[in-house]
Amino acid sequence: MSEKVLCKPTELYNILNQHNRISRLAESNYLCLIDARAEGPYYCSHVITARNAKWFLFRFRSVELSYVSFIYLLNYFSIYLMFQGPAIDCANSLAKASRYPVQILIGGYERFSAIYPFFRTQKITYTIRELENMKPYPVEILPGQLYMGNYRHATNPRILKDLKLTALISISEDSSLMFEKGSCAILYIPVADSVDADLYSSFEQASIFLASRLNTGSAALICSTHGISRCSTLAMAFLMHHLKYTLKEAWGHVHQCKANMRPNRGFVQQLSNWELQIVGRKITDISEPNY
Score class of each variant (00 low, 15 high):
S45R: 11
Y72R: 02
L73P: 00
R51G: 02
F56G: 00
L74E: 01
I88Y: 14
Y76L: 08
S78G: 14
F77T: 12
F56Q: 00
P86Y: 08
R51S: 08
R59A: 12
V68C: 09
F70C: 02
S78T: 04
F77N: 13
E64T: 11
N92C: 10
S69V: 01
V63L: 10
I88G: 07
I79T: 11
S78M: 02
N52L: 08
K54G: 09
P86M: 04
F70D: 03
A53S: 15
L74K: 03
R61H: 13
F56Y: 06
A91I: 09
E64P: 01
R61P: 03
F60V: 08
S62I: 01
R59Q: 12
F60Y: 15
N75I: 04
Y76A: 09
D89L: 15
P86L: 05
I71S: 05
C90G: 05
C90S: 10
I79P: 03
N92I: 07
S93H: 09
M82N: 07
L94Q: 07
F58E: 14
Y67A: 08
I88V: 14
F77L: 10
L81P: 01
F83P: 03
A53P: 09
L73W: 00
G85D: 10
F60R: 13
Y80Q: 06
A50S: 15
Q84Y: 06
I48V: 15
T49I: 15
L81Q: 11
F60W: 11
R59Y: 13
A91N: 11
T49C: 12
N52F: 02
S78W: 02
A53E: 06
F60A: 09
A50T: 05
Y72I: 00
M82D: 05
L73D: 00
H46P: 14
R61K: 14
W55C: 08
I79A: 13
A91K: 11
K54I: 07
I48G: 06
Y72L: 01
I71Y: 01
I88S: 15
S62G: 07
I71H: 05
Y76V: 04
H46S: 12
N75K: 09
A53I: 05
S62M: 06
S62H: 10
L73V: 11
T49E: 10
D89M: 14
R51Y: 02
M82W: 04
N92D: 14
S66F: 05
S66T: 08
V68R: 05
Y76M: 06
R61L: 10
N75H: 15
I71C: 10
G85I: 10
R59W: 12
S45V: 08
G85W: 07
N75A: 15
R59M: 12
V63Y: 13
S78Y: 02
L65S: 09
Y67C: 04
S78E: 04
L57P: 00
S69T: 06
R61I: 07
Q84H: 07
I48P: 05
L57H: 01
I48D: 01
I48R: 14
D89T: 14
F70I: 03
L74A: 03
I79D: 15
P86S: 10
V63D: 13
L94W: 03
A50M: 06
Y72H: 08
W55I: 09
M82S: 12
R59S: 13
D89G: 15
S78V: 04
F83K: 12
L81W: 07
A87R: 00
I79S: 14
L74H: 00
L57S: 01
I71P: 00
